[in-house]
Amino acid sequence: MGKSIVTIGGGIAGIEASGILAELGYAVSVIEKEPDFGGKLKNWDHLFPNMRKAEEIEDYLSRKGKTPGITLFPNTTIASFENIKSGFVLKSNHGVSYSAHAVIVATGFEVFSAERKEEYGYKIYDNVITSADLEKRLKSGTPLTTLAGKTPQRIAFIHCVGSRDAKVGNTYCSKVCCVTGVKQAIEVNKLLPATQIFNFYMDLRMHGLEHEEIYKTAQEKHNIQFIRGRLSEVSENIDHSLLIKAEDTLSGRPLKMNVDLVVLLVGMEPGVGTTAIGKACNIEFNQYGYLKIPDVHLAGNLTSRKGIFVAGSCSCPMSVKDTIEHARSAAFEVHRYLIEN
């Protein structure tokens, strides 16, 4: 066929889509700004809904990345983007030119910077961490303790940090945090069975077959306690434990609680890479800053420009599973486009 494709972003979506297209015989160049591929997957320990090790997916992707026809370009960013008759020419920061008949944008997401919720004291109080931090700690296998090395007696997971919050400018639901919070609560309970665990939520969005099952398991087998109330603030006690305040909405009274560790379930945001590439390619963004798709039902991988496609969480928050599916459909859309053009 001899047609070439450039994929921007070598995370889950970028590698998956590129692997399929390479199998179909296309020459695919994958541009990745980091030294290694796989995106944020390397930071995750276990994946919901079946608690598989994230490494299994990493291994799968690393095999996929070796598909004949794929060339990986680590430590590379796009400096310029040009339209030509047969497609596009992209120039890298190293001065290399890539010509492409089609481009896939797979620049992924960023984790919400929790320090923007100043009242929760992230990066100020010793024992306030994010779900992303916890995932790394679980993966490292080191014992889960407070900064001072104490086994936490009580831990609070805080849902919707940086999501569904007009005050930080993110009014959307990040979709993965509810289940992540309950998954992590279960994992912590397995490690520290004597520790009391509370999840503070506004609505628990445990959709589908598996997620509701995780919720039920958390209640039945792991004694996770769920409190319906949004946190107003976190402050630090003299012993470096944390005082958290919320409304216990079901009893209708303000509630305070001392905990040893607070885990903020941070949402997703469009990354700086997505913003930069979107602007360079001159494609449209939606109101939330993600890349805009022209039809939510029928064109989930298209952008506002012909020949430029989108794969994965640069178009909206997605789980690993959703990302892989979205990448596969992106590959199909690109293939169809290249056959037709």
């Binding site: 320090e115 100043e118 004291g121 992230y122 990066k123 100020i124 109080y125 010793d126 630090e236 470096h240």
Partner: peptide, 10 residues
């Protein structure tokens, strides 16, 4: 308490 975090906010 991490002084650096506060300085970032300031």
């Amino acid at each position: 308490m991490k002084a650096e975090g506060k300085r970032n906010i300031w």
